[in-house]
Nucleic acid binder design. Sequence first.
DNA 1: ATTTAGCACTCTCGCGCTGAGAGTGCTAAT
DNA 2: ATTAGCACTCTCAGCGCGAGAGTGCTAAAT
Lengths: 357, 357
Amino acid sequence: MNDLTERQKFILTLVIHEYIRTATPVGSQHLVARYNLDMSSATVRNELAVLTERGYLRQPHTSAGRVPTEEGYRYFVSRLIQATELPDSTRRMISHQFYQMRHDVEQWMRLAASVLAHQSRAASLVTAPHPEKARLKHLELIATRGRQVLMVLVMVGGEIHQRILILSEPVGQERLSQVAHHITTLYHGKDAEQIRALRSLVEGLEADILEWVLEEMEHVDSVVAGEIYLDGLTNVLSEPEFTASDEARRALKLLEEPTLLQDLLARTVLTHSPGGVQVLIGGEGTWEELRQCSMVLGSYGAPGLVMGTLGVLGPMRMSYGRAISVVRFMSNLLSDLVSETLMDDSAIKSDEEVSHE
Amino acid sequence: MNDLTERQKFILTLVIHEYIRTATPVGSQHLVARYNLDMSSATVRNELAVLTERGYLRQPHTSAGRVPTEEGYRYFVSRLIQATELPDSTRRMISHQFYQMRHDVEQWMRLAASVLAHQSRAASLVTAPHPEKARLKHLELIATRGRQVLMVLVMVGGEIHQRILILSEPVGQERLSQVAHHITTLYHGKDAEQIRALRSLVEGLEADILEWVLEEMEHVDSVVAGEIYLDGLTNVLSEPEFTASDEARRALKLLEEPTLLQDLLARTVLTHSPGGVQVLIGGEGTWEELRQCSMVLGSYGAPGLVMGTLGVLGPMRMSYGRAISVVRFMSNLLSDLVSETLMDDSAIKSDEEVSHE
DNA sequence: ATTTAGCACTCTCGCGCTGAGAGTGCTAAT
DNA sequence: ATTAGCACTCTCAGCGCGAGAGTGCTAAAT
């Protein structure tokens, strides 16, 4: 399995580019005309034949142009693609937007999804930062009415969970605050397992509350990713291979199913480190519905503390260069933001502007 | 403008039903055959002619069947439709699901969106309960790192807002808790305006913090609705009038634009009371992109305290009976849930089961 | 030994045509 | 008032066909 010649690589690149542009099979004459190649269509034809035999291209039918195969895209992505960085002005603009709303993590997620979708012209998905193992940072209990209590749980890393408890009898706000404070000081920084080991430190009402806390924390641990933000579904919808095909419906249906997405993203989070970008072509790795789609996935976060996933999903015929660069950029940007803002224990130098009304 | 005869109403109903079922123009012979009418097709034809002249039906071209017009649907919805309640078993099942997760408002919203989408077989949208005027219930300040502080704001009605503050100098958790407690006791139950009037009660750090609180509360007031939950986009996508038409893209694009949705829902919230259901046909009321769509909207909540909107969006050729009944049902169900769980000041009798580990 | 020109061949796609089918409106009979 | 009958209209699926694009192969040229 010796390699392709330079010219073959070059031609493969051109075919892929052209197919991404036009969504129609590309022929030899078309190529020489459009790119002013200084060889004849016959030469190109020979090379196309080789590439086809190698499995990188295929013909929809005899005597039609060539279309890249999955392997073709894969070869292109892994060996041929050259890093197209986003223009500097764009990067600045995007960073600026993020730093303008440094106070709200949820808005970051939305903005990240929106930027990914716009820049890649595909559908995007982003998960909120999520701890690998939830550790308690702060507990708050707020009396609402009668026996009902609003429990607000802040995890190390900044994730917030809320839940309504129903006690067996009414308890005043004063007492609740005491309990919350006590639990917070006792178990600050501990994960569910550690808390469970030490739960005999409290009793009575406090023990009951702690049970709720544990339940919630274990629930948090059982979910692999935070909330999922989507954007740009309409982008992929308007691609020709999706209009009127029921392939579209199935793919979009997938995106409406949060559990499936969780699964999908879980693998990614586990299998690679932030900064790196993973490209899945044609639903690679058992995803029947996405056979026509590709994904470019990355992750972000502060390793060991909180992590999130982000990526774009488009037709297999998507602009990988653009997608990879924007995913990588956003991955780094969000990592920086998260580290700067949410980190807790580590001693990272901070030199943000003093903003204080 | 005298009214239609009974038979004309009857035939109009049949035409609409049949068109909703088949999505193809319906003709006279077809009607008599399918519904075993004891009149001839010629009679039906005459009536169809009348209905067409009145503007309730139209022919795509000479010698094709009839299709309902916007006015046709409107007449049908406002005067002909008979309330089709959801089967009792379904209602029970849905209620049960909700009461099973009484601890998490966010999950209610997701479930509500999901139920609406499934039952109506259209796209659904639900907004989280949102106060008309935010009133402070509880403030919590949590030290994170250096000068950074996580502010958690709980409003009367249960809405929670969080935000990261950056102080001019580090402040310990003890002090922060004090400040939060003080502000909570001073301004509990007050809205932004009232707090602003009384802000001279505090000074120094507390005054600074209060400024952030006010800013956030005023921001909350400026938004007309809570977070928006969508579901079932793929339902409407698979309708024949949407496949391959770029009408589809524009309509879905609308749903990706949160600000537009806010606008749209705002009108509804303002213009009618919970329990009532509003039907907008053909993007009635200036919504160009939705000319092919209809919406069935309702609202829910505890009047004066928190309100939310919910509804379904489908092709004009949607099953209004089903949609109206499910929207009404969900509207009432959510109202009950919200009242039972989130209400605060009013003295509503509560008789929930004692659930306490 | 490549590259290229030429050529015969294949396959798709858009076009116009056509006949079947569905539906209508009108008129006359019931 | 209703209905049977009928002539007419319009869509739509199917078909044939020619243009166009693309291929593979062979033989000549570099």
